[in-house]
């Protein structure tokens, strides 16, 4: 794949990051207003990882996502209107209203689903890598997971299987410093998550997850590696700038810590780089902002005006 380094691609990346940010902010507002129910885990502050990763992938690749999956899905090309409709519990949502925030997928995009079970995507991505290998198909599987999932048995088992069988899987940890309220230093023995790669004899790379270009380049390299030599573990360091989910007061984090990470917010950081490179001009920035605003507005309109799912079809999809 030719690396998308053109001006247009960088601007596209910026628009995607902004779209994810605004989408998640809209979701938080809609929750506060009581217009959507259930739960949702916003990816505010983690946009560079989703966008940088998906920029480096090919259409034949697969992705498994997490409970914090809206950003991954949008970055992979998911339709924000259908994602929003799923959050509204509408028939036009990706799962027809049956899934909600944590359960959406689109096979045509190679997006094998977000997942409400912490770490459950790890073996699924492993099996996808196995499938690619056995079918001698082109492509890789990318497994997004959080620092919390690195304490699941599935993490260790999956890395072991993929390393033994040399599967084309990129295990991409989004270390946002907290498993819900529990900090990484209370969950990760041995110093770091990336250090665990050594135990399975695979490369482990630490990446600045708030730097879009760093993520893009790391995943691009990782993709080439896993196609030839088997799995890799990437640990992208980041921080969620909002709560874990709706209703999280963030009483476990100090304001100072949050401020420190806000200074490293991936969105203004990438924007500043674009401006400095002369890629993003004032009118261009305004155009992108307006485009994103329209997409979000249309998504909410679409979701609100879509029909409810038909209750009598509830058992469809269950083998009998």
């Amino acid at each position: 794949m030719k690396p998308p380094r053109s001006r247009r691609h960088w601007l596209g990346a910026y628009q995607q990051m902004l779209l994810i940010r605004r989408f998640e902010e809209a979701v938080e507002t809609l929750f506060r207003q009581g217009r959507i129910r259930g739960t949702a885990h916003p990816a505010i502050g983690q946009e560079a990882i989703a966008v940088g990763t998906c920029m480096a992938l090919a259409s034949c690749d697969y992705i498994t996502s997490t409970h914090r999956g809206h950003g991954h899905f949008i970055a992979r090309g998911g339709d924000p209107a259908r994602i929003m409709a799923e959050l509204f519990g509408k028939a036009t949502g990706y799962s027809g209203g049956r899934g909600g925030s944590q359960i959406m997928a689109d096979w045509s995009l190679g997006f094998l689903g977000s997942n409400g079970i912490t770490g459950a995507g790890l073996p699924v991505a492993t099996g996808t890598g196995l499938s690619l290998k056995v079918r001698k198909a082109n492509g890789v599987a990318v497994c997004f997971f959080g620092d919390g999932a690195a304490s699941q048995g599935m993490f260790h088992e999956s890395l072991n299987l993929a390393a033994l069988w040399r599967l084309p899987v990129i295990y991409l940890c989004e270390n946002n410093q907290y498993a819900m309220s529990t900090p990484v230093n209370a969950t990760i023995a041995g110093g770091s998550i990336v250090a665990r790669a050594t135990g399975y004899g695979i490369p482990g790379v630490t990446v600045d997850g708030n730097d879009l270009i760093a993520v893009y380049e790391a995943v691009q390299k990782a993709r080439q590696h896993v196609l030839k030599q088997g799995p890799i573990l990437l640990e992208c360091l980041t921080y969620r700038l909002s709560g874990h989910s709706r209703g999280d007061s963030c009483n476990y984090r100090s304001p100072g810590e949050t401020e420190k990470w806000k200074a490293r917010d991936p969105l203004p950081r990438f924007k500043a780089w674009l401006v400095k490179q002369g890629i993003l001009t004032g009118p261009e920035a305004r155009r992108i902002q307006s485009t994103v605003r329209t997409i979000i507005r249309d998504a909410v309109r679409f979701a609100r005006s879509s029909p409810d799912p038909q209750p009598f079809r509830q058992s469809e999809g269950i083998p009998t």
Binding site: L112, V124, V134, E157
Partner: peptide
């Protein structure tokens, strides 16, 4: 060995991987 895969003792991830493989063409 590509079609008869002797696995480590990892029931959780073997069944999870089989699920992933089943959902992607095997």
């Amino acid at each position: 060995p590509e079609r008869v895969i002797n696995t480590p003792i990892s029931e959780l991830s073997v069944v999870g991987a089989a699920t992933g493989a089943a959902m992607t063409g095997l």
